[in-house]
Amino acid sequence: MRRTVRAATALAFGLVILVPLFPLYWMVISALKGPEELQKAPPTWFPSHVTLSAFGEVFKAVPFGSAFLNSVLIAGVSTLSVLVTSVMAGFVFAKYRFRGRDLLFWSVVATMFLPPIVTLVPLYWLVSTMGLADSYLGVMLPWLANAFGIFLMRQFIADVPEELIEAARLDGASEARIVWQIVTPLLRPALVSLAIFAFVFYWNNFLWPLSILQSDDKFPVVLALSRLLSYSTSVQYQNVVMAGALIASVPTIVVFLLAQRVFVQSISRTGVKG
C-alpha cells in the first residue's frame, strides 16, 4: 500500500515536471529542424538533423533585432518607473495618516482587477489625442505606474518599524531621504520581485502595443512575432517562427530562473492577504 502511494506520487511529480515543459521542448526542437523534416507527418520527436539556420532567417524575415531592443526599452523604462512610483505611493499609504487614505488605497487596489480590454477604446483615444499614437512614449505612458506595485510596496513598507522612521526624522532627515535612503534599502527582496513581475508583464504585453503601434520599427518583440507568424503560416517555415518564439521567451525565462525563489515567495506574500 505504502509503496503504491509512493509510486503514484513519484509518477505525479514526473507529470508535473513533464507537462509544463513539453511545449518548451517542442519549441526548441522545432526551431532546430530543417524545412524537409518539418514537413514530415507524423512529426519527429527528436530532430534527425540539427540546423541553426532558422535563427539567422528570423532576423531577415522581420526586423526582429530592433524589435528585441524595443522590448528591452519599453519593458525596462516601464519597470523602472513602476518601481519608483510604487515605492513613493506605497510609503504614503503605509506610513502617513490622512482622511480618506484607506478608501483611496482600496480604490487603487480595485483597479488591479480591471481587464485592460474594458478601457482600450478610450485609452487609444486619449493617447492618440495627446499626439502619442505610434510612439514609444504612447506605448509606455499608461503603464508607468500600477496598482499591483503600489499594493506590493505598501504591504512591505508597513513592516518597516515606525521607530526607525521617527529616529531619522529626529535626526532631521527629509521625507525624501527617509524613503530613498532608509526605507528602500530594506525593501531589496520586494523590489526584486516587483521588478521581475513588472518586467515579465511589460515584456509579454500584447494587446496595447497591438492597438497603439503601426510602424514595425517600433514593434516590441511579441508584436514582431505575431507579424512573423502571419507571413509564414506554412509548416516549412515553422522553424523560423519557433526560433522567433524562443528568442522572444529567453529574457523572461532567464529572469525567472535567476530570481525564481524570490519570485515564488513574493506571490505567497501578495497573493492572499486578509
Binding site: 509544463p20 511545449p23 518548451l24 522545432s30 500584447f206 511579441v222 505575431s226 507568424l229 523572461t252 529572469v255
Partner: peptide
C-alpha cells in the same frame, strides 16, 4: 524543480507559447 517547472509556463510570453500550442494541435504535423 516541480514548482519551478509548473510556474515557468506563466512567465513565457503568451504570444510565443500560443504559437507553439498551435503546432502541438496541428492535425497532421
Amino acid at each position: 524543480v516541480a514548482r519551478a517547472a509548473l510556474f515557468s509556463t506563466y512567465v513565457i510570453p503568451t504570444v510565443a507559447i500560443a504559437i507553439v500550442w498551435g503546432a502541438l494541435y496541428a492535425p497532421d504535423y
